[in-house]
Design a protein around this nucleic acid. Structure first.
Lengths: 132, 132
DNA sequence: CGGCATCCAATAGGATACTG
DNA sequence: CAGTATCCTATTGGATGCCG
């Protein structure tokens, strides 16, 4: 590991990944986090660790498959922790990792944006649909 | 239109939409903006209005279908303007609306997050895959 | 140039049944 | 409770051809 200045590291990281490029890993990561289930799950976990069943109830109509699948991906990507308590029946808690907490403000902003600009979007759709 | 105080309107809007609810329109809007093409297009348009062909070149490997489809949706939702100049051949420019500019910081943050945390995510994946 | 229409392959994702 | 496994349908999205 060569020592570099902050500026050097910044320049390097700037050049390293570019989501505009199709083959860039960042493109796949962008795709992964640009997902409604990711947004809802991370937002839900903002209030602290929660059990699988809590998340399931909180996020209306999420199927067991999508909830598990999304949580597994988030865990693998280092955004979410999974803690199993081997009681009977088993208890599983999910929480945000430090890395996961860095994306929380973004996910929160996106969800909030959708909720607070819904009226404007509806108005725009009405204009578009009636004019067309 | 009844006159309300800012606090009343805020409280009302707060209660009006909730993306956690499956039937809520905000859930569909969240789904719509949680899309890699939306993110990339809005980011690209941050630098000012651009032609269709510019966007196509900038966003590597986006198909004509997805680019047009996403732009149409964004236009309908009031985030993007579409300006046709009837020359031969025709010239079409896309730009962000004021509403579109309100979502730009979020889309920019998401894309930047993906690019700047790629290394951490890769490391997390390696840990997950080798331990499992 | 900037599309639209169509067809088709791939993927996402819901429903159901079963388990430690 | 918190999953896994399987099946099957619906949606996504690429490829192609045509057009003003």
């Amino acid at each position: 590991m060569v020592t570099r200045t902050a500026a050097e590291r910044r320049a390097e990281s700037k050049a390293a990944y570019d989501a505009y490029l199709a083959e860039c890993p960042a493109r796949q990561l962008l795709e992964r986090i640009s997902d409604k289930w990711v947004s809802l799950i991370v937002n839900a976990l903002a209030e602290g660790p929660q059990r699988y069943s809590d998340l399931s109830r909180r996020i209306a109509s999420v199927s067991q498959k999508m909830l598990t699948q999304t949580l597994r991906n988030l865990e693998r990507d280092g955004l979410v922790t999974r803690t199993v308590t081997p009681t009977v029946p088993v208890r599983v808690d999910y929480g945000l990792t430090p890395l996961g907490r860095t994306i929380l403000p973004l996910m929160r902003a996106v969800k909030t944006w959708a909720e607070s600009n819904m009226d404007d979007v509806i108005a725009a759709r009405n204009r578009y649909d009636t004019s067309a």
